[in-house]
Design a protein around this nucleic acid. Sequence first.
DNA 1: AGGAAGAATCTAGGGCTCCTAGGAAAACTC
DNA 2: GAGTTTTCCTAGGAGCCCTAGATTCTTCCT
Lengths: 199, 199
Amino acid sequence: MHMARAGLTADRVTLAGAELADEVGLEHVTMSAVARRLGVKDASLYAHVRSLEDLRGRIALLAADEKTIRIAEATAGRAGKDALVAYANAWRQYAHDHPGRYTATQIPIQIDPELVARAAGPRRAVELTYSMLRGYALEEPDLTDAVRLMRSTLHGFTSLEAAGGFAHARPAEDTWVRCLDALHTLLEHWPTHDEGDSA
Amino acid sequence: MHMARAGLTADRVTLAGAELADEVGLEHVTMSAVARRLGVKDASLYAHVRSLEDLRGRIALLAADEKTIRIAEATAGRAGKDALVAYANAWRQYAHDHPGRYTATQIPIQIDPELVARAAGPRRAVELTYSMLRGYALEEPDLTDAVRLMRSTLHGFTSLEAAGGFAHARPAEDTWVRCLDALHTLLEHWPTHDEGDSA
DNA sequence: AGGAAGAATCTAGGGCTCCTAGGAAAACTC
DNA sequence: GAGTTTTCCTAGGAGCCCTAGATTCTTCCT
């Protein structure tokens, strides 16, 4: 008699937490709530996950992996502005589809280093940005700066959009398209260094 | 005998919460912690603040006000790239000086509307961006798009920087300066619409 | 098949948090 | 100085995080 095993595992717990985050917001992802969703007592989760903070970190890494995969698929075989647009749209779409997971991405890094080492997501994400920008003729350190600008703008836009930062006057979608245009032309005409600040 | 009155008020509670947020992080701002810092029992706070969520909202509005004031002071009497740089530096500096308050800014809006109406911060912030960008020859709707791009990039950069998103290879400071250059030239050569997508 | 070893889950409980209800004490008003 | 209002308190319920130790399920060995 009695219940069959729930078949928990660190990954299943993380997934349940991620789903919950998308549904009710990351701040409402609690041990008890995840346990309830899995039909299990909260104490049972601690065999698979060290703490709530650990769980949040795992959700963040899961999100980073998923987002990276989406971007990789979207940009595969594309170059130039095509690649830029595909990259950016995949980023934004992921944030829309998985708002809870995406906000997990933003938490200041306090994740088990061993776990981070095993997750390829964040590292590959940066690499993808680099290779996507290789279509534009940028040399280091301009390339690094461009990568950072790129990531800042995409993150800032999706983040502000999710927080309701854009008043309704003009559709965010239209602004998005124009911003991508702007970024593209900016990357094509990246201001070179020796102008005004060198002796 | 007994204690003298603590002299609490909604603003004093909010300020204590804001200070605590800067010291230990917004997620550790609890009713009990704020009460302890004020030398008071946690139940006493509920005479001034509706709930923890309400308190967080008040901290967010306080931060928005303060940030706006700093930006206004920094850009006063400046124009063009001067104004742009002053604006951006004030933004970033505020995030550095008050990390807890700044992250409060990012919480999805769920603040008492009556409170929001009384706080001029967020509205003035957008107005300031508009007037700062008037130096560049932009017409609507390009102006709105530029404002949004501007805010997205600044928010994204400071947010990623605070989260440790920039590996140590190149100093974030250098990238920052170059990004402002890039934004400036972008605003001067904002891509006009009728190119490629109109019939 | 029987039983030992190991893993997964549960029960019990401590400490902390948010928040409410109602009482005591200070400050203000006249 | 008495009454009113405001400020702060004590008391307590409900929920959450997490630990310790018991219990049940699986697996695997012989």
